[in-house]
Nucleic acid binder design. Structure first.
Lengths: 347, 347
DNA sequence: TTGAAAGCGCTAACAA
DNA sequence: TTGTTAGCGCTTTCAA
């Protein structure tokens, strides 16, 4: 069944403006080879007729698409929301649409989705979020990048380690090492010497933040007691458990650096359950600055990660000129001191 | 600059399989008019060559697109996440992609976005979330629906009032009236007689839930004291204020029905701040069953809204057959009793 | 500075 | 059951 072809085509505009289709195409593409009086007439006609390009025809004829592919692990959580909002806001300002899909952390699925997006001729594909760093990672990203570049698209890594060896992969990151560093430094400056670190295994984000924790200690000439590093859980509940166990095992510490705000809430709960005063007996800091961090009790000291800005920059990288010089951007982080940290008790 | 046209086209497949392009097209479209031996040969060839249709060419030639347009107010919150995940999951199972964009509650922007999605020939456009119900609402939706229907697409309303007068608008809703009703009934059955209702003005969702509150009272032969209806705020903070003020004004009530879980957290805070025991002195129930509801203290009694299922059904409505009979689906809700409700004090 | 002509990869009458 | 023939609406050489 044919549907009403109500849409105005480029040919309609050409006819009404008394020029050829090619000229209209040139005007609309902003090629400055057309006489300005013609430009004006064509633009006026297009507006009057309410003409809108047919994106499919444009792409098919070899033109460029402006839709952005956006691949995330899952559509949950404040980090996702902020980042996605950033991408969307930037895209909206430029009249682009975004195609979103979830990988569920499955590399095969991820690969398939990248392929789908490429087949849709996405202007670029953004891959978001912490990655399991294994040997295959670099190779996978390189494969994606090549597949995309081959059709004039591009790969943009957001919040993931960049592939600096590759000239065709763009990236936006936040400085995870600095985040771990500044949080630890804050604790160290308050006088804490035994800082528990609740972290996750095998994820790029956590290991970088942990590196910051170590670096801050090294800088201050202080050793790190590896017993203080609590690895393993990526949930609030898990961390609650781990911290509770550390507490009842009599582990000695006066502060906790949770590698994410989510883990921090777990630590907070464990401490509170054990009747430990925060921050009087033990200080707690998170990293991320989730919107809820300020609402915790006590309000959480944390490190702000500019997720929305990351999204915006990623979108810019997608839509920007190919030869853009700085393909690798690192966004600054910022310590946010609230009420969950204080000097250690002066026993 | 031309890019490597590495992609295999339908013509390539036709040539390799020794048939015409149309035959390949028919096979791929699943039209059962082709000899089965041919079907097999073509499928085999397509697979061997790694052929993937070019969606742009397909759409341009009058074929049908399978990408879903998804318009939300903002990409925040558990309800959004669950609903979007549902849409995405269903779409993924069918090999569809979804285009997402945010309206920011601006009708003009919404209209423009619907137009963009139509120009992209989205298979259907899902409009999500509570709507300001004014006179223009119905007209706006009807306009969208007609614009979409004209190009073989369709409008799907999710979590919004349906346009039953229109045969070309599909909808999935959850039963808001029942939600308000069941929560109120629960409170009534516990023995509460003065139930404060924290609600929002002018939104379809809230007014329906409020209607449930009234209905439950009417059914029990109980009057509703309009002083108990606290209208105005749509945030936890605002509700905290309102409830605090009601408390200090000496308003008499033994339970609170918050029209959303978010408002419930505000009520909880106000009550706790005033030293009111929950649920011993005052019971509180929310509606929505946000993932965090169980983590509140005390764990919140609420009504589960099947957001993810709403998303799945909406996606099905997008991709399903046009002549699908039940264009209007209402999904059931369910009371979840936890620890924030109890019988009123027997003073 | 502009137009004519040739596709991009696919679908859909219409024939055969 | 299959092939032939036209396009869908746009971009882009190549000429003028």
């Amino acid at each position: 069944m044919k549907h009403t072809r109500s849409a105005i085509t480029l040919d309609d505009v050409a006819r009404h403006a008394g020029v050829s289709a090619s000229t209209v195409s040139r005007v609309l593409a902003g090629k400055n080879v057309v006489r300005s009086s013609t430009v004006l007439r064509v633009q006026e006609t297009a507006r009057r007729l309410g003409y809108v390009v047919n994106p499919h025809a444009r792409v098919l004829a070899g033109g460029t698409s402006t839709t952005i592919g956006f691949l995330v692990r899952a559509m949950f959580g404040p980090a996702f929301s902020a980042l996605a909002s950033g991408v969307e806001a930037e895209a909206a300002e430029r009249g682009s649409l975004i195609m979103i899909s979830t990988t569920r952390g499955d590399p095969d699925r991820e690969a398939e989705l990248v392929k789908m997006m490429r087949d849709q001729r996405a202007a670029a594909v953004i891959l978001v979020g912490e990655a399991h760093i294994d040997d295959a990672y670099e190779l996978r990203m390189a494969t994606y990048a090549d597949a995309l570049t081959a059709v004039g698209s591009r790969l943009v890594l957001a919040g993931r380690p960049p592939l600096t060896s590759r000239p065709n992969v763009a990236s936006v990151q936040y400085d995870n090492v600095a985040a771990g560093h500044v949080a630890t430094q804050h604790l160290l400056e308050l006088g804490h010497r035994r800082i528990l670190c609740a972290t996750v295994t095998g994820m790029s984000t956590s290991s970088e933040r942990l590196a910051g924790y170590r670096a801050a200690h090294a800088e201050a000439g202080l050793p790190v007691d590896d017993d203080l590093i609590l690895e393993g859980s990526s949930t609030a509940e898990g961390t609650e458990d781990l911290v509770s166990r550390a507490l009842s095992a009599g582990l000695n510490f006066t502060a906790v650096l949770a590698i994410t705000d989510v883990l921090a809430t777990g630590a907070l709960r464990a401490l509170r359950r054990a009747g430990v005063e925060i921050p009087d007996a033990v200080s707690v800091t998170g990293i991320d600055d989730d919107p809820t961090a300020a609402d915790l009790d006590p309000a959480l000291t944390t490190v702000r990660i500019p997720f929305e800005e990351v999204g915006r920059v990623a979108a810019k990288l997608c839509l920007g000129h190919r030869q853009s010089t700085d393909l690798h951007r690192v966004l600054p982080i910022e310590l946010v001191v609230r009420h969950s940290t204080a000097s250690p008790p002066t026993t």
